[in-house]
Design a protein around this nucleic acid. Sequence first.
DNA 1: TGGTGCATGTAACCTGTTACATGATTCG
DNA 2: CGAATCATGTAACAGGTTACATGCACCA
Lengths: 178, 178
Amino acid sequence: MALRFAALGLLAKEPASGYDLLKKFKQSMSQIWPATQSQLYGELNKLAASGLIEVSNVGPRGRKEYSITTEGRAELQRWIIAPEDGLVQRSPVLLRISLLGEVTPSQAHEHVASLHSFVDQELKNYEESFDTRDWQQDDGDFFARAALEYLLRSARMDAAWARWLIDEIDRRNSQSSG
Amino acid sequence: MALRFAALGLLAKEPASGYDLLKKFKQSMSQIWPATQSQLYGELNKLAASGLIEVSNVGPRGRKEYSITTEGRAELQRWIIAPEDGLVQRSPVLLRISLLGEVTPSQAHEHVASLHSFVDQELKNYEESFDTRDWQQDDGDFFARAALEYLLRSARMDAAWARWLIDEIDRRNSQSSG
DNA sequence: TGGTGCATGTAACCTGTTACATGATTCG
DNA sequence: CGAATCATGTAACAGGTTACATGCACCA
């Protein structure tokens, strides 16, 4: 379902081809709803078949430029404000963490340490991209910014939690050995 | 992949049947890696076929009790400390948020408000279950606790972010109308 | 004219969800 | 004996990933 509306959402701003959308997915959508080329082209055909978008222009190399239809916009708006389905997120990271009792303490420590350095780097990347961005400029995308704010806060939280976990592990190790 | 190791992880603690595991998934695993009955039974057969678990006992009603094998334990340990694949999480919530520019300001406000009340309730549930839990007791599950700590912090962050977003929206509305 | 980039499509495979289907056992 | 629960299996479908396949157009 969601990919459908991610694509529709991009087309709501301006007409684009599958190829165009693919690039946009790599830029703005990559942290929220990544999509592969294969998936996107399939979805565009389905969207066109159900009349939510239409081919508004044909260019060189078989380029099909799609535009959102009135129906499509209505459907998009309906979906956006629909109640959330529930937010359970599968997380391989947490699964690994919760199973760390199955490996040796030093392996566990090592794993968490490398996780920490990873999320810490992620956080730095986010903070940098936030600092360099000119927020006055693209104020049109206030809500896209709000989503990024979420990701930034997530990254901060991840880093703080990983830090906390390392400390807890160290505290535990010193207790059992002391 | 992950379901495989979630099941293996539970079997690493003690032998169990598919039916037993299903209950455990509903309890301890539900926030990290939920699984359906259909999926679990299939995976157990695959695990048995590849020799990572084995039927250690057959009970009434065709009950098959599985135990982890030496091979299985080794495989599990290998997976647990494997480097993370990258932590991009698809999020319908964020997708909806980032598209809120497509609906009217009052619809957007309404949507975020209801999201806020939802995540706030979630947070309260987590906090309550944390308070009522006796952490001295099940210290054996230190890392499972660490995963819950993550979920609690996530819930806190979600609530704070939703609160922030509502304030931002209000600030914006009063600016444009004043 | 040959390589790079534009542009789309399809097939195989894996994971996950819902629903259907079946039957044994225990307990009141 | 009938209902609830134990216990497993399968089929259909939706979504996602990787890889393969094809061909046009532009520019050096």
